[in-house]
Nucleic acid binder design. Structure first.
Lengths: 138, 138
DNA sequence: AATATTACTTGCAATTCGCAAGCAACCTTA
DNA sequence: TAAGGTTGCTTGCGAATTGCAAGTAATATT
């Protein structure tokens, strides 16, 4: 899991994002951290998609290195680690919600609640604000 | 390049998206098709990030299989192939613009024009409409 | 003191990636 | 109409990444 010094391909802002979260797992971890309020390694591990422990550990390291999340140990239980999105991470909520809206719209068998897409379209800013506020509260 | 029958991990709408474009290259191809109006294999190949021909061919096949793009041959030149986003593909413009806005905001050395983020924030719907309209025109 | 939890590493086989070549179909030029 | 160039791919192969299983160290619980 040698952390290689991230070689930038280009200065394109989309490429910048992809070099951080352009893989099959990173945005799922951010989904759990940003939209599902998960905080610990075990919670992230237990997601339905079934990420492996080495991949999860690697992605959390990269996200921390990229300044998207913070890592701290739980003062109430020294074994536990708390992962938390930084402001830079919280700023990805709109990206995740747009992907979710696209997926829910174009997947006939989506698990998304029926009112998600209409609600998001009707009040995009409100939906984003609701998720964002929840992250800053706890 | 064996196309394996895409095994769904879950019905999560974000996972649905990631199974189509959750890798280092696919969204860059869509960037070129959706935001840069590229249409041919060579144009996509010439992007600054330097995608390999086998990867590009593979991703174009997957995008076509997913219904995100259409493939047709150029009536004016039988060697050339025209790749074009479907409605499902055009619907990814907001996703790409959100990623671009995030990248431009958080990358100190971004190549994005200085007025992109302010312009996008001031008139999100207008920015999306401008890109979308351009795709339907030609 | 013994056992369980939590957050990870480590090993290794299997898949995927990326570079370089090759190739078939089509167009252009002479 | 023959020769050469262009276009959109495919093929081979070494290197990197992934994913599963099995550890392990540092706490916490009983």
């Amino acid at each position: 899991m040698a952390r290689k010094t991230a070689m930038r391909r280009t200065g394109c802002p989309i490429n910048f994002g992809l070099e951080i979260f352009g893989d099959r797992w990173t945005l799922l971890i951010l989904r759990d951290l940003l939209l599902q309020n998960k905080r610990r390694f075990q919670e992230l591990l237990n997601s339905d998609e079934g990420i492996a422990t080495n991949i999860l550990a690697d992605r959390l390291k990269r996200l921390e290195a990229a300044g998207v999340i913070d890592r701290s140990s739980d003062p109430a239980d020294g074994r536990k680690v708390i992962y938390r999105a930084t402001e830079k991470g919280v700023a990805l909520v709109p990206v995740l919600l747009e992907i979710a809206a696209w997926g829910a719209t174009h997947d006939a068998k989506t698990d998304a609640p029926a009112d998600f897409v209409p609600g998001f379209k009707a009040d995009r800013a409100g939906t984003i604000a609701a998720f964002t506020a929840r992250l800053r509260d706890d």
